[in-house]
Simulated assay, not measured.
Amino acid sequence: MLNQVSLFTENTKGALHNITTVLANANINIYTMLANDSAEFGIIRLIVTDPAIALQALKSAGYQCRLDRVIAIDMADTPGSLDKILAHLEAANVIVDYLYISYNRQTATPIAIFKTTEPEAETFLQGKGYVLVNTL
């Protein structure tokens, strides 16, 4: 499993730049960044080189944030791989809270990153033969 930094920020001009500045000043490299918005606030999800230091730096800068455990699966750049993953999860009654696609720099393959509250999801996926990723 990976640790993901999740934070809330206002939907204002320069909000994303302010976040990246905090992380750059803390010498944190961003591997994946997903920004979702609502009317006035956005949820930013980050996979970074050092989640604990990123969390500390962001909290010190006044952001409301937390660490979330997410599951990352190497999709091996094969058509239909995400469909197969989701079919297995559905058959096992695993609810996916959210999902996004990233990229594994080491293997040059796409990675499905998702959040679930099902504690056995990781073990289940490994049992199905999926390659889980702990670093990007």
Rank of each mutant, 00 (worst) to 15 (best):
S60T: 11
L67S: 03
Q106W: 06
I44K: 00
L86H: 01
K59A: 07
F114T: 00
A76Q: 15
F114G: 01
I73G: 02
C65V: 06
Q56K: 05
V94S: 06
A108Q: 13
C65H: 00
P51C: 04
I95Y: 06
D74M: 10
D77Y: 11
D68V: 04
L46G: 00
G42S: 11
T107Y: 13
I43V: 11
N104G: 11
T109G: 07
I44F: 03
S60A: 12
L58T: 05
L99Q: 07
C65W: 00
I73M: 10
A39K: 15
C65Y: 00
D83T: 12
D50E: 07
A108V: 01
M75A: 12
G42Y: 00
I73P: 04
D77F: 08
A52G: 01
Q56N: 04
V96E: 03
I101W: 11
E118H: 15
E120M: 13
I71P: 04
V70C: 13
T116S: 14
T49F: 05
P119G: 12
A112I: 08
I43Y: 01
L67K: 09
A54N: 03
A87Y: 10
Q56T: 07
H88N: 12
T109W: 07
D37A: 02
I43R: 09
Y63G: 01
E90H: 13
I43Q: 02
I44M: 11
Y103D: 05
I73N: 02
S81L: 04
D97Q: 13
P79Q: 09
Y98R: 15
N93A: 12
I71A: 07
C65K: 01
F41H: 03
I53F: 09
E120Q: 14
F114W: 03
I111Y: 03
F41L: 05
S102F: 06
V70W: 04
A92G: 08
S60P: 00
T116Q: 10
A39R: 06
S81M: 12
A91F: 07
L67C: 04
R45I: 02
A92H: 12
I85C: 11
T107V: 12
Q56V: 07
T107K: 15
A57R: 06
K84I: 02
E120C: 06
A76F: 12
Q106S: 09
S102D: 04
P51R: 05
T116D: 08
Y103Q: 11
G80H: 03
P79F: 09
D68M: 03
